[in-house]
């Protein structure tokens, strides 16, 4: 019987320091070839003695047979330790878990708050070279030092319609004004007939969705990726349950209807 809790060793091929408290780990399992994931899925990631936590996969699913990336922001003991690793060190992971984002079959708007771009990056990477759809990115952060992929976002901006705004300061390369990501939704013309994928702190969901509604975005095209405490990853341990569903197994990506039905927009 397959042991769903079995963590496997993955070697750090490359480590990129994104900012003071965030690293990108490019990883490879011993048996990387058979590893597959969908954009929006996550791994349970751990280190001996430090436990596990869920981390979104942020690399291109099409490159899964060679490597995968995890972007790790320090938020507790485990993630602090993960931030101190070096190339050729090992991390331990199991997964992938969750449903991932729906298939991108039309234009795509990605809305991120804080480090919310981390799970969205995988969708972006998968679709960035497509000629049949347009991609728009709207990103809000508190401060410049909190931006996870500052250099990368500048590169993305050259290729796609990317707007970034900071709450507490201005950043000439992106925006002359301060504000929240909702301001970007208000002030930008949104792509027509687009899927909208949102990831950010829970406090952001309602205001973002309210703005999207004002712009007549169809409810059925809005999806949100959630963060919850998780232990098992397979819908048993109950930590991540919301209403009738489990964020780890039935999510982490849910359509707007789910948010409404479970009073998650209050």
């Amino acid at each position: 019987m397959h042991n769903v809790y079995q963590l496997k060793k993955a070697k750090i091929l490359k480590l990129v320091r994104e900012n003071d408290n965030t690293v990108t780990l490019k990883l490879r399992f011993d048996e990387q070839k058979s590893f597959k994931f969908l954009a929006g899925q996550f791994m349970q990631v751990g280190l001996p003695g430090f436990g596990e936590c869920p981390i979104s996969i942020s690399s291109n699913p099409k490159e899964s047979s060679k490597q995968f990336s995890l972007i790790i922001r320090e938020a507790g003991e485990l993630t602090r330790k993960l931030n101190q690793l070096k190339a050729d060190d090992f991390v331990y992971a199991r997964g992938p878990f969750g449903n991932g984002f729906p298939e991108v079959n039309r234009n795509l708007i990605l809305i991120a708050g804080g480090c919310g771009f981390i799970p969205l990056r995988s969708v972006y990477e998968e679709n960035k070279n497509r000629k049949d759809i347009k991609i728009q990115l709207l990103i809000g952060c508190a401060t410049a030092s909190g931006i996870v992929f500052r250099r990368e976002l500048a590169r993305i901006k050259e290729k796609h319609d990317l707007s970034l705004i900071l709450e507490k300061e201005t950043l000439p390369e992106f925006s002359d004004s301060k504000g929240l990501v909702t301001k970007l939704i208000k002030e930008n013309e949104l792509l027509a007939d687009a899927l909208v994928f949102i990831c950010g702190p829970a406090a952001m969901h309602k205001s973002v969705i309210d703005e999207l509604m004002k712009k007549n975005v169809a409810s059925a095209s809005i999806y949100v990726s959630f963060e919850r405490r998780m232990h098992c990853g397979v819908g048993v341990c109950q930590h991540c349950a919301v209403g009738a569903k489990y964020v780890c197994r039935d999510g982490p990506v849910f359509g707007l209807e789910f948010l409404k039905a479970n009073s998650l927009l209050n």
Binding site: G51, H231, Q238
Partner: peptide
């Protein structure tokens, strides 16, 4: 009621993952 926590724990024999 069957919910559980899964955690790494240090023991005299070394690190164990327990629920």
């Amino acid at each position: 009621c069957f919910c559980f926590d899964e955690q790494d724990e240090a023991t005299l024999e070394g690190v164990e993952k327990a629920r």
